[in-house]
């Protein structure tokens, strides 16, 4: 169990750095079409920001903000977004995860629809990876004697 330790410098730096890490994670996600990046890398960055909070503060204080119930919902929610986009493509008359048929409901051509489909899928991957890494870290850091949370 990670206990709280009163170190003003560490706590202030963690508090200041967290929004910048999360903003950079979103940059990595949305620039994944044009530069190295994407859902996995951005998700790991989001997870790193939460893990920094858990290390700098303690577990209870972080799970007040990002509760375990919401964490488990995000675990499944990312996969649901991914599979939902795939099923939406079937409903619009294409194959599974064939994003070009999304141009029927979006005001763009088939090629741009594929780029937007990639973006939606990457958002799902980012949510899943971030929530799952935070969940694994919480389980390991609390040594199994978990607080229950929800």
């Amino acid at each position: 169990m990670i206990k709280k330790h009163d170190d003003l410098i560490v706590e202030t730096l963690a508090r200041l750095l967290t929004p910048f890490i999360q903003a950079f994670a979103l940059y990595v996600l949305f620039l994944g079409h044009y530069s190295p990046g994407g859902g996995f890398q951005g998700g790991v960055l989001v997870a790193a920001s939460f893990i920094l909070l858990i290390i700098a503060f303690d577990l209870e204080k972080t799970t007040e903000r990002f509760s375990e119930k919401f964490n488990v919902i995000c675990n499944g929610g990312g996969v649901f977004i991914y599979a939902g986009i795939g099923v939406l493509c079937i409903l619009l008359g294409g194959n599974l995860l064939d994003y070009s048929v999304l141009s029927k409901i979006l005001p763009v051509g088939p090629e741009e629809a594929r780029a937007l489909g990639i973006l939606g899928v990457e958002i799902g991957v980012e949510i899943t990876v971030a929530a799952c890494l935070v969940s694994i870290f919480i389980d390991l850091a609390s040594k199994g004697e978990n607080l229950g949370g929800s």
């Binding site: 996995f40 990876v129 799952c132 890494l133 694994i136 389980d139 390991l140 199994g144």
Partner: peptide
Amino acid sequence: MLTAIVVMVATFGIAVALLMRIYK
């Protein structure tokens, strides 16, 4: 390998969780 790295992290997490249960 991008997918393999993430799977590597997942298997490592499961392995460490199992080790904790064994140690307990």
